[in-house]
Design a protein around this nucleic acid. Structure first.
Lengths: 241, 241
DNA sequence: CGCATCTTTGATAGTTCTCAACACGTGTGG
DNA sequence: CCACACGTGTTGAGAACTATCAAAGATGCG
């Protein structure tokens, strides 16, 4: 159907992209190997540590990125310092707000993160030339909108206990998108403070609710970050779904 | 620059569309008069009363719509009946979730609403053929995402008083997008219960905060729905911005 | 091993919810 | 024209939940 796209292990594919997860799943999936080659000339890989700011809240950013691995948190802050995390992004999400200088959110690495960055201008020109690329962007944006609205229900209407359970469920499902088992084991990508900022709670309340879930046997926690969920269905009930 | 688009008062423009606000501001702005003519053959105008459900939460909808006038509320509900309004849409917004059968939210008219509806299939075909249309959709979706994230900050981190002030500010700015005055007068498009569902509060708390703002002279309220804001800057302070 | 950071736990205060009664405006029928 | 019911909004008192402040307990790192 699309002969130019038969480049799965083709030498035409730029070296940088050959082992890249985003090559087919992310926005790059919309590109032919020719286009990928052109883009890769302007792109640069970067490994950053947790806490690194990738995009400033009101800074005009001059580049877009693909997340290769790791978790990025998007957050907004009020003048007095109150903070709210408004979204988490995982590989192979696209990072950046097209068609606007300011993006209104700041993006910070929650874990170790690998990104592949491109100059704003190059991407925006390619968007204009390639409907497929714009289509991918629209799909991702629609998905982010769905997730944002789901989270609004969590923020506005769920109790502290349900919020914490919802968070665990979100991480569990994103870490293992097609997990069929009843049980999961994973590492929390964020501190208690971050979780609180994501759930609209305080650190202390998050901690208390985690303890409650632990004492009731819904989860097991080791070394603060390592979590085991023996029965996902039981966790779902706690999340109010 | 685009000769086909010189149809502002052109007889080529379908009758139905000639007096339509969305003709240039909404997604239809991406269409030539030819395409508009084709689309208008499949489109139908509808006037609905407050409370009418336009899109069901898990119903597969078979049509998309443009909002011609009025306010539409998008909401999600939990199994036990708790409800959260996750967005408001005004003219000339596009209504519907492309590329997915279920859209996860239900849309209900908050005021008297006029919509222009098209069959799902027709729109989706046109999207495939017209990059400009997809671009418009992407821009609207990005704007909705920005608004959703702003509201997440409101839901997660603001006090009841700030939430109510934020709501008033939202309505004031959307009712008069380019108001330059200090003061505004407008009608609230929703009941106290709806406002509560939008803010993640109870009706009673909304009412108490409104009376507080009234007693402090930040707003005047007549007949429950009619509001006057003498000093928008003062309201902004209350909203925490 | 010791220090800095993060997390848990406890006691108390504050905000918002819940339940209940009352007020207001509107439309209906006697 | 008034009485009444009904939907909607307001107000009050007490309960429940979450935040705040404070201290102690883990954890990780040099």
């Amino acid at each position: 159907m699309d002969i130019q796209r038969k480049d799965v292990h083709n030498s035409d594919t730029p070296l940088l992209c050959q082992a890249c997860e985003s090559r087919h799943r992310g926005v790059c999936g919309a590109l032919t190997s020719d286009q990928l080659l052109k883009l890769s000339k302007h792109s640069s890989r970067r490994d950053v540590e947790p806490g690194t700011e990738l995009v400033g809240e009101s800074l005009a950013t001059k580049s877009y990125s693909n997340i290769i691995s790791g978790v990025v948190k998007l957050s907004k802050m009020m003048a007095d310092g109150r903070q709210q995390i408004v979204g988490l992004q995982f590989a192979p999400d696209f990072l950046g707000r097209p068609f606007r200088a300011e993006n209104g959110v700041s993006a910070e690495a929650a874990t170790d993160v690998k990104v592949c960055s491109f100059p704003k201008a190059v991407i925006e020109r390619m968007i204009g030339e390639m409907p497929e690329l714009e289509h991918k962007l629209l799909e991702q944006t629609l998905n982010e909108l769905d997730e944002a609205r789901n989270w609004m229900l969590t923020l506005g209407r769920k109790t502290a206990g349900e919020k914490v359970a919802s968070y665990l469920l979100l991480i569990a499902t994103h870490a293992f998108p097609d997990n069929e088992e009843d049980s999961v084991v994973f590492d929390l990508p964020m501190s208690r403070t971050d979780i609180a900022d994501f759930l609209g709670l305080t650190m202390e309340t998050v901690s208390r609710q985690l303890t409650k879930l632990r004492k009731e046997g819904v989860i097991k926690v080791m070394n603060n970050r390592h979590v085991e969920v023996p029965d996902l269905a039981r966790l779902s009930e706690r999340a109010g779904v």
